[in-house]
Write a protein that binds this DNA or RNA. Structure first.
Lengths: 354, 354
DNA sequence: AAGCGGAATGTTTACGTAAACATCTCCGGT
DNA sequence: ACCGGAGATGTTTACGTAAACATTCCGCTT
């Protein structure tokens, strides 16, 4: 076997690195006995190549294992066919679904995606990521959750089209996001409509803009209905935090309904309530947010606010491509994607007080 | 301020596309009154530039909003600082955690990641994705689940370093994967050790290699223990499929233990059992596979086989970078990452038959 | 003061590709 | 036989960058 080095070549001969010549158009041209321009024509599928010649060139390509050099093409064309995506904790919930939608939408527009995952959506981390990407080869940038107030703080390269999702940058950069406030309002109104006196809130972290919007809408909706506003429980999006706070909530017999800022915290809360012997929804009603794929298979199946991640991803890419291709400036474009309450089994009427 | 995009242009003037000149080193050089080579030196942080000159060049860069052209650099350097990743259904389960780990590991090695999401891990889809990426600018390729028998079927560009995860391509391409067989064996042995007569299996799709490995190890372990091997239930990884099959399983009173090929199907099974009034683990014990973040917050908390996705991602990138930088050929390198049984509350002794 | 060495900067070149332009060949029409 | 024209192919050039090589300028030694 040619490629087998596991046995003999114990000495790592550095020369082998050079011994692997990546063929260029010129090599193919030489082998096929044509000019490199003809190779280019075959490579790009251009007209005016005799079928016979084309076949010969294709043969030479195959023989040499030629594939076009992306950098050279990008340099020539002036674009990369790639968009950058800065995401925050990819393996978590909605984030990855938005990314998936962006990747898919990008593919449909003929772009690939360069991904950078940042630990926190703080300005510093996002700036560092943007810097790395701008040294990369991208035509535009999608930022999913840039929790910063001004685009200046991001130190983005000018001339680089950018769109953001779920952010405070509206007015500075084109933004696309789900209707957080409407979602929270619907959740709270649904619970009030079931007869609950008030609704508690298991909130996301304070430095998250969607968390803030959901919390504010929760509070506003309660006030508008003339209901008492209990202090919110403050989690960090994780199921673990929902569980820990849930142990406190479970001890509070006055809590009959909880609106959770995301489904994962709701899952943690459910576990805490189960462990405390409080029934869902007979004793406590729960509504989540996000509609993660597993929401329907928690126990009980979780009533939640569904975000249309696919639409968000599509719209993000649309806005970005518009800027890239038309050079349009869309500074104050903002798209709000509607949200939907998915009623399952985790919420019901409040228990009857004896 | 230079980077401020919040400006007036509410009218989308198409001319702005042309009026937006992306500055090059030459422009910076002209403004700073130096040669473009000096700009290059400043840009790359090279030596032999007088502090005063450097400052002047940096000023010119900022004034023009210069940022280096990635394509030109890549062409010059002969590499891209990017690796391609082909993943399958990003928003699902272990996939996204592996991707996250790969992204992180790549960052540590100084690479960004170009992502392509394919619908199915079939040969055709993966080939198409690889083709798209190879036209892109990448130094190497990570394929997560290429369910094909030979690398020839993938039509990968030669000269392109490749590693695969969870695949049948061992012997052809360097591979990294969790110890599927050991995980399944541990799960089954654990259940048998609790006293169950036999263990049923909720399997993954037949065309998936990890699903096959888990199913085979399940069967082998039962046979080795001299236990009857019931026909497996065949799902498609989704919680929905677990739920549908679970409704059948729930009707079968002889089932006391089920080993599920992943956690999501386990979640679906749990819901079906709950709905049928069968208790977990008192009536039916369940063990999953993957240890998704939510596994600890299902009800009951799911006993499952944990894959070390972070290690898999790291090792994939290590192997790839080794090939890229040393030109090493690692055709039959294979790394198997150990697996661990995480005992929670979804499995227990079988019910006592009256 | 001549000469030397090294730092600072400029000039040339190549990376691989494809558009633009140039050339060449072959065909039919007159 | 000649010419127009179109298809096929070759040649030149530019994309933006940075290495390699060349030059200038300075201060210091002898």
């Amino acid at each position: 076997m040619v490629g087998d080095r596991s046995g003999a070549a114990s000495v790592a001969d550095v020369t082998s690195a050079k011994a692997r010549p990546v063929p260029s158009m010129a090599d193919v041209a030489a082998l096929a006995g044509v000019s490199s321009q003809t190779v280019s024509r075959v490579s790009t599928g251009a007209d005016h190549v005799k079928p016979e010649t084309r076949a010969r060139v294709l043969g030479a390509m195959k023989a040499l294992g030629y594939s076009p050099n992306g950098a050279a093409r990008a340099l020539r064309y002036g674009n990369f066919g790639a968009i950058g995506v800065i995401a925050h904790r990819l393996a978590r919930t909605g984030e990855s679904r938005t990314v998936e939608a962006v990747v898919e939408a990008a593919r449909l527009h003929g772009y690939t995606v360069s991904l950078v995952d940042v630990r926190s959506p703080s300005s510093d981390d996002v700036t560092a990521a943007a810097a790395r990407l701008s040294h990369q080869a991208i035509d535009g940038l999608v930022i999913i959750r840039a929790e910063t107030e001004t685009p200046a703080a991001l130190a983005l390269p000018p001339h680089l089209p950018v769109v953001v999702s779920d952010s405070r940058l509206f007015g500075h950069l084109p933004a696309v996001g789900a209707d957080q406030s409407d979602g929270a309002r619907r959740a709270v109104q649904y619970l009030l409509g079931l007869g609950h006196t008030t609704v508690h809130h298991l909130a996301g972290p304070e430095d998250s803009s969607p968390a803030q919007m959901r919390a504010e809408a929760w509070e506003t909706t309660l006030r508008d209905a003339g209901r008492p506003v209990p202090p919110p429980y403050r989690g960090d999006w994780s199921a673990e935090s929902g569980y820990q706070l849930g142990r406190t909530i479970a001890e509070n017999a006055t809590v009959t309904a909880v609106f959770c800022a995301n489904d994962e915290m709701a899952a943690g809360l459910c576990r805490a309530l189960h462990e405390a012997g409080r029934r869902i929804p007979e004793d406590v009603s729960i509504v989540g947010f996000d509609n993660i794929p597993l929401a329907d298979f928690l126990w009980p199946p979780l009533t939640t606010v569904a975000q249309d991640f696919a639409s968000i991803g599509n719209r993000l890419v649309e806005l970005l491509v518009e800027q890239i291709q038309d050079g349009a400036e869309l500074a104050d474009s903002r798209t709000i994607i509607p949200v939907e309450l998915v009623v399952r089994a985790s919420a019901g009427p409040p228990p009857v007080r004896p």
